[in-house]
Design a binder for these strands. Sequence first.
RNA 1: GGAGAGAUGGCCGAGUAGGUCGAAGGCGCUCGCCUGCUAAGCGAGUAUACUGGGAAACCGGUAUCGAGGGUUCGAAUCCCUCUCUCUCCGCCA
Length: 422
Amino acid sequence: MLDVKYIREHLELVETRLKTRGTGIDLERFRQLDSQRRELLQQTETLKALRNKVSEEISRIKDKSQAQDRITEMREVSQRIKGMDEELKGVEETLEHFLLTVPNVPSPATPVGASEADNVEIRVWGEKPRMDFTPKPHWEIGEALDILDFERGAKLTGARFTLYKGLGARLERALINFMLDLHTGRHNYLEMLPPFMVNRESMTGTGQLPKFEEDLFHLGEVDYFLIPTAEVPVTNIHRGEILKGSDLPLCYTAYTPCFRKEAGSYGKDTRGLIRQHQFNKVELVKFVHPDHSYAELDKLLDNAEEVLRLLKLPYRVVDLCTGDIGFSAARTFDIEVWLPGQDCYREISSCSNFEDFQARRASIRFREDEKAKPEFVHTLNGSGLAVGRTVVAILENYQQADGSVVIPEALRPYMGGAEKIG
RNA sequence: GGAGAGAUGGCCGAGUAGGUCGAAGGCGCUCGCCUGCUAAGCGAGUAUACUGGGAAACCGGUAUCGAGGGUUCGAAUCCCUCUCUCUCCGCCA
């Protein structure tokens, strides 16, 4: 959520910057609601001040019959206050809802562009594997090795659900442990294991609600949602809190499954593990001082890249343009891994700085020192990495002519020493 | 699922026959004094949001005692609903 005062004072700037996202915003509506709110607020508060003053006078009068005229008068004032408060509440709710649906202002550093096509490749790492055979897509490799069972996944639940078998399941589990060990051991993140379903407030705090409810799985019996990413529970850990400035940055990592409806992507990536309703991810989340958030974003991105470097999987980093960054993000770098079976790079991590957008929604603040006023932290997060897509990358990049798949060296300790599958 | 207890400021904890209570007291913390150092002691200060005025320092108003609603001139205190925590019983990985 954007700061009301900031919008009020920088209307044109906010408008032009938001336009670069391709999403218009009706700032005239904001202006109207905002001034309406302030006007009503002043009126009702003046009346409340009067009521408080007179009520206090009444309290000092021992013989209440002497106060009867004032009591009658205040009874009427209270009625008026009640009416105005209701009107005010209506305006505030409208304004609040409006603000909750306005996306974050992109960072000035974010390249301006209309779509994915305008994203900027900023670096490329690793050598694409040379193969003297036609590389297969991972779903063929996985089925041939009998480690991925798409048919039974669909039987158990439906489309976009997959059953992992044997060394396939083991590979997924190995990757989770490998990533968590790396981030906790080498990169100094604190491991968290949060709930996999959260309430409406948490979903609103990180920006999934109210705008993107159709992307979420909702539990009918209670008003809970399955998390679409660990970002939601982990960022909300500190919702409504005031942190100590000396504790920043707080760096958390968490493994969770993620559940997404993938509404609107019918017919896209229907084969294989790329787009699932349920997938595993290891997430990195940071709460940082506003002055350092972009330096922390660079570090977080590097921490995510490190996973691919250790696994020796070729990748590139892309600077998302204003037309392609997410609703809550001010700046985002995607890491795309090379997939020989599909002859393209595919997103495997998305690392974003939300600045104070989520912090304001979720009220996550810090004090520079004991005396200081609370300020909003900046929140960041990134996948470190999407586990299913890492399996995809390993299967496709490490496939051999004979159909077997070599296990990356770094992962072997997590695979009981196995060197290959098949 | 059944029965009961509770939710107050950074923490502990008063306050329920409604009124001067944003809220005693203690702890913690900050600043100053004192002390050879430390400890102790003394004094002052110590919530947040919105809003009006002001360049600012700051001054004023309103709201907030789990959340929401009600009664009342006036509610931390009374009534209703909900949420959460704790204890006991049942069930259960």
